[in-house]
Amino acid sequence: MSLPPVAEKVQELCGDGATSMEEVVDRLTIICEKPINLVEYKESWGALTAFKAEFEDRINVYFPPQKSQQYKLHCIYHELGHIYLESLRTSLALPNLSEEMLRETADAISITCRSVPNHPVERWVEEFAFEMSKKTRARSSFEPEPFL
């Protein structure tokens, strides 16, 4: 399986400089031609940290309540990475969901989830999440520093 370079795809999606999750969701909504909803889902999560479900008319990204804001954003970015990667027509990672989650997403067209395996797609979207977090965290003070 050949996956595109993450940095190149992040640059294509967000350009140079800083960005925000809101901007990324807006851009992906345009690419996918469906609204993307971020849904905090309070059921049992086990070892899962987030998942996304695509319906006819929308894409939902589910994530658990988290004490850590950084980790919550990272997990959402991971799922947004899946959405972006799928829009590039690459293979999907296999979901691993609980019964409740499967019921919730019964009429979904496709599902991917964020767990922590060492699959190439999972590594790609995890790297995507890292890159996006850099661009998001740089938002307040982004300025090139070529002399430091």
């Binding site: 086990g46 899962l48 940290t49 850590s68 950084q70 980790y71 767990s115 922590v116 890292f130």
Partner: peptide, 20 residues
């Protein structure tokens, strides 16, 4: 250093989640 700290925090969260 800041990105390294961020990455380590995520890896440690993943470790906790993955191993319950």
């Amino acid at each position: 250093l800041e990105n390294g700290v961020y990455k380590s925090l995520i890896v440690l969260h993943n470790y906790q989640r993955g191993n319950l």
